[in-house]
C-alpha cells in the first residue's frame, strides 16, 4: 500500500510477481477508499484477507495524514493476522525503478512549501547522502550534472534541474509505487525477514508544525 501522495496505489503479488494493482488517483479521501479497494483487489484475485502472507507499506515521506492512514491500515491487517509487515521509505521504493540509469540517482518527492523531500543514491541504489527536505536549488548544488532524477516533484522542477544539470535524465512520469513496493517486500520476506507490524514507524522528514487545537 502506498498512500503517501495523492497518487496512491495498492498492489497484490505472488512471490515477486505482481498479480493485481489499483491506482487510488486524484484527491481522494484514503480513509474511505483504501480498504474498499483492498476488498476489490482480493476479490479479483479470488483471495480472502486471511490468505495474505505478508504486508508492506511506504512509510513516507509525504502527506502526514496519508502515510498514517497507510501505516495504521497495514498494522491492523498484519497484527490481526499475525503476518509480517515491511515498511519502506518512498525514496527506497522509487529509486528501485531507476537502477543503472546514471551513476547518481536523485529521488525528489513533492514536499510543497517550495521544498522537496530528496534522497541521493549511487547507480546501484545505495544511499550516498542523508535524505533531506530543502529547496530544490540547494539540492542541485550538491548533485553531479549527469544524475538521473526520479519522483513526483521532477515535473514541477524540470526547468531548474535542466538549467543546473544539463546532462540529467528526467523520469518525469511517476509510476504508482505499490507494485514496486510489493516486489521489494516479497524479496525481503523470501529472504527470511519477519518485520513486526508494530515496529513499522512513519518517516516524516519534516517536523510537526506546532499549533494548539481549538476544541
Amino acid at each position: 500500500m502506498d498512500t503517501t501522495t495523492n497518487e496512491g496505489s495498492i498492489a497484490l503479488s505472488r512471490h515477486e510477481t505482481v498479480i493485481g494493482a489499483v491506482s487510488l488517483s486524484g484527491d481522494q479521501n484514503y480513509s474511505t477508499v483504501l480498504l474498499p479497494a483492498v476488498v476489490e483487489l482480493l476479490a479479483g484475485a479470488g483471495l480472502a484477507a486471511a490468505g495474505i502472507e505478508g504486508y508492506a507499506v511506504t512509510t513516507g515521506p509525504g502527506s502526514f495524514t496519508g502515510l498514517r492512514i497507510g501505516i495504521s491500515t497495514v498494522q491492523g491487517l498484519a497484527l490481526a493476522s499475525g503476518r509480517p509487515c515491511v515498511g519502506l521509505s518512498a525514496f527506497d521504493v522509487r529509486v528501485a525503478d531507476g537502477l543503472g540509469l546514471a551513476p547518481t540517482l536523485v529521488v525528489v518527492l513533492e514536499a510543497y512549501r517550495d521544498e522537496v523531500y530528496a534522497a541521493v543514491y549511487d547507480g546501484n541504489g545505495r544511499p550516498t547522502h542523508e535524505p533531506s527536505v530543502e529547496a530544490v536549488g540547494s539540492l542541485l548544488e550538491r548533485v553531479p550534472p549527469d544524475a538521473a532524477f526520479l519522483g513526483d516533484a521532477v515535473g514541477r522542477y524540470r526547468e531548474a534541474i535542466e538549467a543546473r544539470c544539463p546532462g540529467a535524465i528526467l523520469h518525469e512520469r511517476s509510476r504508482p509505487l505499490a507494485p514496486t513496493l510489493a516486489r521489494l517486500a516479497a524479496r525481503r520476506l523470501a529472504a527470511g525477514e519477519r518485520p513486526a507490524a508494530a515496529d513499522v514507524r512513519p518517516y516524516y522528514l519534516r517536523e510537526a508544525a506546532v499549533r494548539s487545537a481549538s476544541r
Binding site: S31, L35, T73, L77, A80
Partner: peptide, 21 residues
C-alpha cells in the same frame, strides 16, 4: 474529535474487522 487522530484508530479497526470478517 481530531480527524487525524480518529483516522488512526478507524483504519486499524476496519483492517482487523476485515481480516477476521
Amino acid at each position: 474529535g481530531l480527524i487525524g487522530s480518529l483516522l488512526v484508530g478507524i483504519q486499524a479497526a476496519k483492517a482487523i474487522a476485515l481480516v477476521h470478517d
